[in-house]
């Protein structure tokens, strides 16, 4: 694991996430959001979970970012209005970050290096998914079907009588 690559990806991800949280133009924020998720996928690749990184790219950059852009287009007339910014949220977020940082740096067990492992193949993931995790897999399929139908019903035009 390369620590130079780690720091570059970390800085890129945090900067893109900050831009997504603070930019005023919605479409710029959506693109920064996609960039931040590319960074998270790069972390997954760096940690040896290539399959999860690929799923992250497909699902978030391929589907969720496009969905967000479409929603921005469909709610376009509302974009021009002035938006307020709630500063108490900044205080809460900084307080939570300080608390987490204190907890992480206080725990000596966490400053360990990664043990060497053999690569986790897609074949193994598929085997585990179809044996040990087959019921969770079915439940996720059910949830996705319900979400698909629910989203369709929510955005359907109402019939005028």
């Amino acid at each position: 694991m390369n620590s130079a690559a780690f720091f570059i990806i970390a800085i890129l991800t945090i900067a893109a996430a900050l831009a997504a949280a603070s930019l005023r133009t919605l479409i710029h924020a959506a693109l920064s959001f996609a960039l931040a998720f590319v960074g998270v996928a790069a972390f997954f690749f760096l940690l040896g979970a290539e399959f999860v990184g690929l799923v992250q790219v497909f699902v978030y950059i391929g589907a969720v970012a496009v969905l967000i852009v479409f929603t921005i287009l469909l709610t376009r007339r509302d974009v021009g209005k002035d938006r307020g910014f709630n500063w108490s949220g900044v205080v809460v977020a900084v307080a939570v970050f300080a608390g987490l940082l204190w907890a992480i740096l206080k725990t000596p067990m966490l400053s360990i290096a990664a043990p060497p492992i053999e690569a986790l193949t897609v074949k193994r993931i598929g085997e585990v998914l179809m044996t040990d995790y087959v019921w969770p897999l079915q439940c996720v399929g059910l949830v996705l079907t319900a979400a698909l139908i629910g989203a369709l019903i929510l955005v359907m035009e109402e019939k005028r009588e």
């Binding site: 970390a10 991800t13 945090i14 996430a17 900050l18 997504a20 949280a21 919605l26 959506a30 931040a36 998270v40 972390f43 967000i68 929603t71 921005i72 709610t75 938006r83 307020g84 910014f85 709630n86 500063w87 108490s88 949220g89 900044v90 809460v92 977020a93 900084v94 939570v96 970050f97 987490l100 940082l101 992480i104 740096l105």
Partner: peptide, 21 residues
């Protein structure tokens, strides 16, 4: 620490922005 920073930026966006997206 990186993951905590990402979480807190998400918390910041969820708490302080007024736009639903």
């Amino acid at each position: 620490v990186v993951s905590a920073a990402l979480f807190c930026i998400g918390l910041l966006a969820a708490l302080s922005r007024r736009h639903a997206i």
